[in-house]
Amino acid sequence: MPVPAGEARVEDYLALLKPSVMSLVVFTAIVGLLVAPGAINPVIAVIAIVCIAIGAGASGALNMWYDSDIDAIMSRTANRPIPAGRITREEALVFGLVLSVFSVALLSLATNWVAGGLLAFTIVFYAVIYTMWLKRSTPQNIVIGGAAGAFPPMVGWAAVTGTIPIESVALFMIIFLWTPPHFWALALYKQSDYGAAGIPMMPNVKGEASTKLQILVYSVLLAASALVPTILGFSGLVYTVVAVLTGAMFLWLAWKLFRAEDGVPMRKAARTLFTYSLSYLFIVFFALLTDNLLTRFGSVIG
């Protein structure tokens, strides 16, 4: 039952921030910040992470503002605050804009303008380029739009160094290449939702066979990209072993999906890959962080 205007609860505004998505954004940003060479004041580091979290939440609020019409159609999004009538579109828009300006300004002042500029670009990319343009116009929406979710480790790195080196780009590429197989696996077993909403997701436009092939190709690229930190020399044995094992599992599940028969077996395989992909990035980035902390600890006691 819709909540009367003006009676939205705090948790409704928190829901606008897409906390489940924010958790991954914040974690990868923390890894980028801690793995980056150099030192940063702990208080400034906390402020930087909070700003990145707020910026990510602002992007989510702007996305829900613009997509409230299709959110009302899709079963997995119908209970979001706006389509459920708990928050108006205008309230969500103002909320998102205020948080965007606040997070970018504070990050820029607390750290540097490179980090602030990257955060601003991330918000614009997700809210405008992806949400307003790509999402409803091309089946490549996730491929290009995936860049928005890949920027956080670069922002965290820039908060420490004020630069955008190849190492931070390597972290960007892991997330960027993870995004298509992650979301296309979801789209394979949620085709009816996306079709009803008129969103040109790959399975609805190019068909299941083409989508499964592209998932497999991107999974190969993802597994390879996860080894780049080792090649560049800013990770060690712990990370390398984890990257190889998790990449092999991703490839195995993508291959099983590719070979799955249409219907229930295909949807089951797609759901399995999607579920695994949810934990993949956390595992890989946690391994990178652990590896770096062990190396630093070893150099200190050595």
Rank of each mutant, 00 (worst) to 15 (best):
V101F: 13
V104Y: 01
V104H: 02
A105S: 14
L106E: 10
L107G: 00
L107M: 13
L107R: 00
S108G: 13
S108H: 08
S108I: 05
S108K: 12
L109R: 12
A110F: 07
A110K: 11
T111L: 02
T111R: 01
N112I: 11
W113K: 05
V114I: 12
A115Q: 01
A115S: 15
G116F: 00
G116D: 01
G116I: 00
L118Y: 02
L119Y: 01
L119W: 00
L119F: 04
I123L: 12
V124F: 04
Y126K: 08
A127W: 00
A127H: 01
I129E: 14
I129G: 08
I129A: 09
I129N: 05
Y130I: 01
Y130T: 00
T131N: 09
M132P: 08
M132I: 11
W133N: 15
K135S: 11
R136V: 06
R136C: 12
S137P: 06
S137Q: 04
S137A: 14
T138I: 10
T138A: 10
T138H: 06
P139W: 08
P139M: 14
P139F: 03
P139G: 10
Q140S: 11
Q140G: 15
N141Y: 13
N141S: 03
I142E: 13
I144M: 15
I144N: 11
G145A: 07
G145F: 02
A147F: 12
A147V: 08
A147E: 11
A148T: 02
A148N: 03
G149C: 07
A150Y: 06
P152T: 11
P152M: 10
P153V: 08
P153Y: 04
P153W: 03
P153F: 05
P153T: 09
P153R: 04
P153L: 06
P153C: 11
M154I: 15
V155F: 07
G156A: 12
G156I: 06
W157M: 05
A158I: 03
A158L: 04
A159P: 15
A159G: 10
T161L: 05
T161H: 10
T161M: 14
G162I: 02
G162V: 03
I164F: 12
P165K: 15
P165S: 04
P165A: 10
E167G: 02
E167P: 08
V169E: 09
V169K: 13
A170M: 14
A170L: 10
L171V: 09
L171N: 14
L171M: 05
M173T: 04
I174N: 09
I175F: 05
F176E: 13
L177I: 12
L177C: 07
W178G: 03
W178E: 02
W178L: 08
P180N: 15
P180W: 11
H182Y: 10
H182C: 13
H182M: 11
F183S: 03
F183N: 05
F183Y: 03
